[in-house]
């Protein structure tokens, strides 16, 4: 096993981890504010990808429906519009599911189950419209960009580099936001909604914005991942479980933690395959999930606050 080989596996892990990270960001954002797991995130992710696909190719359907839109947008415009509509979908989910449940002071478990139900509904709607088959972005969606780039001895798929870049950009934007007056108000809402409202902060408006942002991130992530592979109605659900593991790894509700958790998860998976399979075929790839989730369990036992989690000092 050479250093170049390990470096390549590390790069594989980081690039796949970037996908986990960008998915987990939207997840953790809602959790950090509302302490609920919004399982519609995987569905919004898929919807975002299909929206961009349809706006770009001018084609809706493949399942029970065949429609041709009168327009075809360039990738960047379709991407932006797709992400914004995904954000609005996030808002709609807040109004349709989470807000009514909060009003009734429903158990958080109920919100979780409701979100799983809505996610299933959304995914089935996608299947009805587009069919179960895979759709693909046009091959030249990314223009003249080469499919892979060589960083020294290491090969990385260009789209994967873009995903890593966008993830870090999103993190930076969230960091800047967190330093602003609005960001601090949002943190106040997260920590104590009653106190926040006594400071004049409109809690419901901030929650709506949170859902918008998380839907926006979901749409961005879905399109990027769709560009990287191909899209099918269920492709977001594969990220649901791993995304959950990632935000636990990073510390529930910890926003930078979600990114670090995603990257770490990606690297663990890559090294599991890279090291174990190198010596005994099929062992690492066969037990990949067992090993990643085993590590997750250890983290939970020894660092329940997550990898980055700082212990909160709470005096009462």
């Amino acid at each position: 096993m050479t250093a170049g080989y390990l470096l390549q596996q590390l790069a594989n892990g980081l690039s796949n981890g970037a996908v986990y990270a960008i998915f987990a960001l939207g997840y953790t954002l809602v959790f950090s504010i509302l302490d609920i797991l919004n399982f519609t995130q995987g569905a919004v992710f898929a919807v975002g990808a299909y929206l961009t696909y349809s706006l770009m190719t001018g084609h809706i359907g493949g399942g029970q429906l065949h429609l041709h839109l009168g327009l075809r947008l360039p990738l960047w415009l379709a991407f932006t519009a797709g992400a914004l509509i995904s954000g609005l979908l996030g808002v709609a989910i807040e109004f349709l599911v989470f807000r009514p449940l909060r009003r009734r002071r429903a158990d958080p478990l109920l919100a979780l189950v409701a979100s799983i139900g809505l996610a299933t509904l959304l995914v089935n709607a996608l299947q009805l419209i587009y069919g179960a088959q895979n759709h693909n972005f046009p091959f030249h969606a990314l223009g003249s960009l080469p499919p892979v780039v060589y960083l020294g001895p290491v090969i990385v798929r260009s789209i994967q580099l873009i995903i890593l870049g966008v993830t870090l950009l999103a993190l930076a934007a969230l960091w800047l936001f967190s330093r602003s007056r609005y960001g601090k108000a949002l943190f106040a809402v997260a920590e104590n909604p009653a106190v926040a409202s006594l400071l004049g902060i409109s809690v419901s408006r901030y929650i709506v914005w949170t859902f918008f942002l998380s839907g926006l991130l979901g749409g961005i992530a879905g399109t990027l991942v769709g560009l990287s592979y191909s899209i099918s109605p269920y492709f977001g659900q594969n990220y649901g479980l791993i995304g959950l593991a990632v935000i636990v790894l990073g510390g529930l509700g910890d926003i930078p933690g979600a990114v670090v958790g995603g990257l770490v998860m990606g690297v663990i998976e890559a090294l599991t395959v890279g090291v174990l399979d190198f010596y005994i075929s099929g062992v690492g790839s066969g037990y990949q999930d067992a090993i990643s989730f085993g590590i997750l369990l250890l983290v939970l036992l020894f660092r329940p606050q997550g990898l980055l989690g700082r212990k909160l000092v709470q005096r009462v």
Binding site: Y5, Q9, N12, S228, Y229, F235, E269, L271, G274, G284
Partner: peptide, 14 residues
């Protein structure tokens, strides 16, 4: 449903 195979590919190609 897996879509990323890069680590398996790197191992196999080695």
């Amino acid at each position: 449903g897996q879509s990323n195979f890069t680590s398996q590919i790197t191992t196999a190609l080695a």
